[in-house]
Design a protein around this nucleic acid. Structure first.
Length: 519
RNA sequence: GGUGCUAUCGUCUAGCGGUUAGGACAAAAGAUUCUCAAUCUUUAAACCGGGGUUCGAUUCCCCGUAGCACUACCA
């Protein structure tokens, strides 16, 4: 009997959601949707010292922006999951680990009672001392009898210490010299000897919270998670997790594991970090993040002008690829085509340039009307009174220009001349395209244009081209000078597209102004 | 140091014993155009090294090398 697919994304609220975390969330989501299963969001806030206010809200907002729907847990949203139905699914809650203390108590006790765990009183100082004393010290079968714990002291003393309020931790008692097999959906069988595992802290009395390892196993079991899809950094502790399932007697219902390759720095070595983004000038977070403690602001993909579809598409292909050459995938297509066994095993260097290209692709595919709406605020920020332009005109302009930019935000510098007359003339263009005869050409052209009533591109072309030919001025020479008058530089779309948008009056005005200013 | 994972153009990758090793990004050149882009065409660019297995290895195995991850009362 096939088990219902249930996956979870379980970030800890320690700051902005890293782009690698976003990819993990995405892969989980794709897998869940493909199998008609459930996508849960759980908050792993078992480290009270690293909690960052606002992080949880940030995570939810980021997932919503990207279109990664949550079926169960924190921040449920998405199609058909609103209201009661959504709440009805939240039967495994609470989904914040800090709110599950009672649950963990029970399971810590179970491990203690079954002899799979013990209580330890060693202070940080004592541990530090041992690390100095014994090279490569590890708290395990070889050293645990040298330490202050319930294995080395009488039960009464343990009890007394706890009663006295002494802080302690609960450690997992690892059986030495045992090969632990982990089946990984991406990597196959991984075998690790338990000797290299230490007696992991499972619970700390100081904040009455479990550590990741315990909470993770208990929650995944209770929440009936079928597949654990997470970053490769967890692979070394996967055997520990297997041992934990075993100690609880849950090995039969243990989830399948899939450890994803890491996202690496674009240059050099190591995994992608926030600092790389700062250094190389690209965002490593989906949304802009304001750190309330430090006041630092980190840039986000949304604020940088990316479309969520582009970010999704880009991220999906960083570590996963189908057999063919297809590169543009909608979310629906990804859900259709995604598979864990086609996830690559090696880390992927983060290629930001390709990310820009993806956004370009989505910009090209986008309706001009939508782009125009996005462009209007930018126009207004540059002092353009957008209400004097009919919407179709703005749509026409963005349609002309979108193919030469990656982001809507780059549109302004490409097409500002449609909205404001040039005040300065690009020196390079002048040098190359404004010749001795240019003023005379422009004056003659001006005279011709002033007589012209039909301002259509076709009519203007029929007027000007024969004139140039007749006078033998050279098309390039005249047209480029004309372009400089209108644009202020040697760039932009076809010249009759520009005259069309500007209209006769404005066109003539610009030519006159240029004649005055450049001479 | 220990343990694990990984290894095809600069980058993301296709390839699942026999291929002119394919595609995309980035780069270069050309075409086109009144300009700048876009577009199209083209070029350059890779199987980490050494052993096996095999008629034949980029592909399978081993070793080496390199990279990465983990090695906390962090996740």
């Amino acid at each position: 009997m096939e088990r219902r697919v249930r996956v979870r994304f379980a970030p800890s609220p320690t700051g902005a959601l890293h782009i690698g975390g976003v990819r993990t969330a995405l892969y989980n989501y794709l897998f869940a949707r493909q199998h008609g299963g459930d996508m849960l969001l759980r908050i792993e806030d078992t480290d009270s010292t690293r909690f960052v206010p606002g992080a949880e809200e940030y995570i939810i907002e980021a997932l919503q922006w990207l279109g990664i729907e949550i079926d169960e847990g924190i921040g449920v949203w998405g199609k058909g999951l609103k209201g009661e139905k959504a709440n009805g699914l939240n039967i495994h809650g609470p989904y914040r680990q800090s709110e599950r203390r009672e649950i963990y108590h029970k399971y810590v006790k179970q491990l203690l009672d079954s002899g799979n765990a013990y209580i330890a009183f060693d202070t940080h100082e004592e541990l530090e001392q041992k690390r100095n004393e014994i090279k490569n010290f590890q708290y395990d079968a070889s050293t645990r009898m040298l330490m202050h714990n319930s294995l080395t002291m009488p039960a009464e003393e343990v009890e007394r210490r706890i009663k006295d309020g002494e802080q302690y931790v609960v450690r997992f008692k690892i059986t030495p010299n045992e090969d632990v097999h982990v089946h990984d959906l991406i990597r196959g069988e991984v075998v690790i000897n338990s000797n290299i595992l230490d007696d992991k802290v499972l619970y700390k009395s100081a904040d009455d919270l479990p550590t990741y390892h315990l909470a993770n196993i208990v929650d995944d079991h209770l929440m009936e998670v079928s597949h654990v899809i997470r970053g490769e950094e967890w692979l070394p502790s996967a055997p520990l997790h297997v041992l934990l399932y075993r100690a609880f007697g849950w090995e039969d219902s243990m989830p399948e594991f899939a450890h994803l390759p890491l996202l690496l720095k674009p240059d050099g070595n190591g995994k992608l970090s926030k600092r790389d983004g700062d250094r190389l000038g690209f965002p490593v977070f989906p949304l802009e993040f304001h750190d309330q403690k430090t006041g630092a602001v980190s840039s986000g993909y949304r604020e940088s002008g990316y479309y969520p579809e582009a970010v999704i598409n880009f991220l999906a292909l960083l570590g996963w690829h189908q057999t063919g050459d297809k590169e543009i995938y909608s979310m629906e297509e990804l859900i259709q085509d995604f598979s864990l066994d086609r996830v690559s095993k090696s880390g992927a260097k983060f290629d930001y340039e390709k990310g820009k290209w993806f956004n370009h692709q989505y910009l090209m595919m986008r309706d001009n009307s939508l782009i125009a709406k996005e462009f209007i605020p930018i126009l207004e920020a540059h002092g353009v009174a957008t209400n004097i332009y009919p919407m179709p005109t703005i749509e026409h302009i963005v349609g002309l220009m979108k193919e030469r930019v990656n982001f809507v935000s780059e549109l302004w510098e490409q097409c500002n001349f449609f909205f404001t007359a040039p005040e300065e003339y690009d020196e390079k263009s002048l040098k190359k395209r404004w010749k001795e005869d240019s003023p005379r050409h422009m004056k003659e052209m001006l005279a011709l244009l002033e007589q012209q009533d039909d301002w259509s591109a076709e009519a203007l072309d029929n007027l000007i081209m024969p004139w140039i030919a007749e006078k033998e001025y050279g098309v390039g020479l005249v047209m480029n000078a004309f372009r400089i008058c209108l644009v202020g530089a040697a760039r932009g779309p076809h010249i009759w597209e520009i005259t069309d948008v500007l209209g006769k009056e404005e066109t003539l005005r610009r030519v006159k102004a240029a004649l005055e200013k450049i001479g």
